[in-house]
């Protein structure tokens, strides 16, 4: 059973093929990593799945329904949550309000003009913050948080509409090794507990090899490899275009608990 089915996806910018004929599935409850050199088409792929870009060709099916041509917010309503490479939260709001905002949107209450937002969905917001370990910071301004904590708040926001699929664009960018590990461990736990599927891009190979169920590799817009950590690590082509000699990461890191 796959939650997301990508078929023959293609996109060109000014004659340059950014993504060419890419097909893959994300299984139910699967933690799938998408890796590849910068400019390989990962972001383009991502942006087509979340609706920010329209593909030239190909189909994307989420929960057995084509989502090509839908707007990002429509795709979100179907149950696709996402986090950004540079964590995107609402800086002028408190941590709790950030999550409440997502809940209010989830319940279709954006165009309400009377009762204050602060009084809406408080308990649920706290529950979500508790899950990511941020309940203690609920009343603080989001702009005051350390970057790692902002990432956690972003995760709570992404979970507010009870998504079936989470799209995470370089979730650990700009974080220290242990923070990376903690965040991905947290995501993995939520994935297992709530049976969410995750598609994520990442350059931190320690994290990818330790946690991903499966890894797919893009290079120059094409899918060049698909397999588990071991198969990808030993793939000559992947080593050549992406991994290199493996001197700048710990290739055999284990998940820490």
């Amino acid at each position: 059973m796959s939650v997301l089915r990508v078929r023959n996806l293609s996109k060109a910018f000014g004659g340059v093929h950014a993504v060419e004929n890419v097909s893959f599935d994300v299984g139910d409850g699967e933690f799938l990593a998408l890796i590849g050199p910068n400019g390989a088409g990962k972001s383009t792929c991502f942006n087509m799945i979340n609706g920010q870009l329209a593909p030239d060709r190909g189909d994307i099916q989420f929960a057995d329904r084509s989502i090509v041509g839908l707007k990002p917010r429509e795709i979100w309503r179907l149950g696709v949550g996402r986090t950004f490479q540079v964590a995107a939260t609402f800086g002028s709001m408190t941590v709790a309000e950030n999550v409440q905002m997502a809940l209010v949107s989830h319940h279709g209450e954006i165009f309400r003009f009377a009762r204050a937002l602060a009084a809406r969905h408080r308990e649920r917001a706290f529950e979500l913050l508790e899950q990511v370990g941020m309940a203690g910071s609920a009343p603080r301004a989001c702009k005051e948080l350390a970057y790692g904590d902002v990432k956690r708040v972003e995760l709570a926001i992404a979970l507010a509409n009870e998504p079936r699929l989470l799209l995470m664009d370089e979730p650990t960018a700009g974080m220290a090794p242990r923070e990376r590990n903690d965040l991905i461990a947290l995501v993995k736990r939520l994935v297992v507990e709530r049976r969410i599927s995750v598609l994520f891009t990442e350059h931190s190979m320690d994290v990818v090899f330790a946690y991903a169920d499966r890894i797919i590799v893009l290079a120059r817009g094409m899918l060049i490899a698909d397999g588990n950590a071991e198969a990808i690590r030993d793939n000559m082509q992947v080593q050549q275009v992406y991994l290199g000699a493996g001197r700048t990461f710990r290739p055999h890191a284990q998940a820490q608990s």
Binding site: P37, N38, Q85, E170, H203, Q240, Y242, L243, G244, T248
Partner: peptide
């Protein structure tokens, strides 16, 4: 210089 780039580029940078 190593942030957010592929491992192979990080090696070239080194």
């Amino acid at each position: 210089p190593s942030e957010g780039v592929a491992p192979v580029i990080v090696e070239q940078m080194a």
